[in-house]
Design a protein around this nucleic acid. Structure first.
Lengths: 154, 154
DNA sequence: TTATGTGCAAACTGTTTGCGCGAAG
DNA sequence: CTTCGCGCAAACAGTTTGCACATAA
């Protein structure tokens, strides 16, 4: 089976897999490829769809399992989205260079990115005063976006 | 059927219900009573359990529907907890006087409260620069608590 | 060859919904 | 009496799991 050019981030990830004694399989390669070529706002179902296009027959359950092991290896990260599916992204992809937290508008359901350093002062305070180490990207922050706020002004 | 003394917050909420033309039912009263007497970290299932103790026969679905309408009326608020059930609290209960956001440790799953004003600078920045109105209590923030950080130090 | 990953189907959790009955107003 | 809420069962989305088979190493 032929596959398209492998992005550097993917090659790197596959190397890390081998290094850790994990197996390099078609499913995992495809998952990585999809993540690399995406905006970083894909849920498992989306990923499964795209993976199946490139590598037919890969089961959803396998995609979940791949995402899980890739997460444990530190290659993939995810963001929990209240009320809907978790979204995944490559930790070191070009698109993820500027680490960002996720804002979600509870009205239009749209996503907005916010640079992680905006959360740095809060993170510092939590660390200093509570010893709590914040993982700002791990859960979406909720609120109302500018557009919806204007549109439904009350 | 007899029920125990009604807390002021509950009486107030029931009055508001009537005012808005909503019906006061045994199920809704029980839900309010449970929320009033709780720490504010109860999920729908927990609430259903306690409601059923006080008012046997109330169905889970009814609890969900009650929580939903009470939320729409602004009496109840909830916090989404990644990977597990949404938790609910009375908006104006004694226990909720000092509004707080929720931190959850991804290791021990424990909850920690943080005063909303710790998030105020971030909220302000989001409002000023993005027009995004943050609802700090609506989703839990994730990270690692002091204890787990020490315990699993790496 | 052998441990590890995979496909499949089925379970599972949290939550919602269509239906006819019952009770609040 | 009429409308709204309820109990029930069934559906739903997202995710996980037990098992037998396939395959990377």
């Amino acid at each position: 089976m032929r596959h398209t050019e492998e992005a550097p981030a993917v090659t790197e990830a596959l190397a890390l897999l081998r290094e850790k004694g994990e197996r390099v399989t078609a499913a995992r390669r495809a998952v990585l490829q999809v993540l690399d070529g995406a905006s970083g706002h894909l849920c498992a179902e989306d990923i499964a769809g795209r993976v199946d296009a490139a590598e037919p027959g890969v089961h959803r359950a396998t995609v979940y399992r791949s995402l899980q092991s890739l997460t444990e290896l530190g290659i993939v990260a995810h963001t929990h989205v209240p009320g809907s599916a978790t979204i995944y992204h490559l930790k070191h992809s070009a698109a993820a260079q500027h680490a960002h937290a996720h804002l979600q508008c509870t009205t239009c359901e749209g996503f907005f990115d916010v640079p992680t350093d905006w959360l740095a002062p809060l993170a510092e305070r939590l660390r200093d005063e509570l010893g709590f180490e914040l993982d700002a990207q791990h859960a979406a922050l909720l609120g109302t976006c500018a557009e919806c706020r204007d549109h439904f002004a009350d």
